[in-house]
Amino acid sequence: MGVDFQPDKPIYQQLIDRLAGEIIRSIRKPGDKLPSVREYAVETGVNANTIQRVYREMEQMEIVQTKRGQGTFVTEENARLVSLREDMKQQYVEAFVKDMRELGFTTTEMIRGLEEYHDEQEDRDD
């Protein structure tokens, strides 16, 4: 229903990640208006209180801006969007490294694994 959520993370955080991902991929561009709280609640199948929290936290992160009576908009501060992209990279790298360490891989093995995977993908694209 709406969005499929992972079990081990609060829904509001998953929605922040989802919106931040869409902003980084330019699906939502600087200055774009986000759906209203209720619209986005219906779209994702989530309680409106949760969406309110999503928008509030994203505002604190300075990724979006709420204009009174107009709605919530993606920030036009380019520097913030660049650092958001960097933050997301960091977050995924950390999660990857943590999982790999738990499985007993060394950093060298991880890097080699990434390079090998990259080369395979390149070959496939040719």
């Binding site: 079990p7 081990d8 993370k9 609060p10 829904i11 509001y12």
Partner: peptide, 9 residues
């Protein structure tokens, strides 16, 4: 619900 997901995962 947030606490269940955050604390208990």
């Amino acid at each position: 619900v947030d606490d269940i997901r955050t604390r208990e995962r």
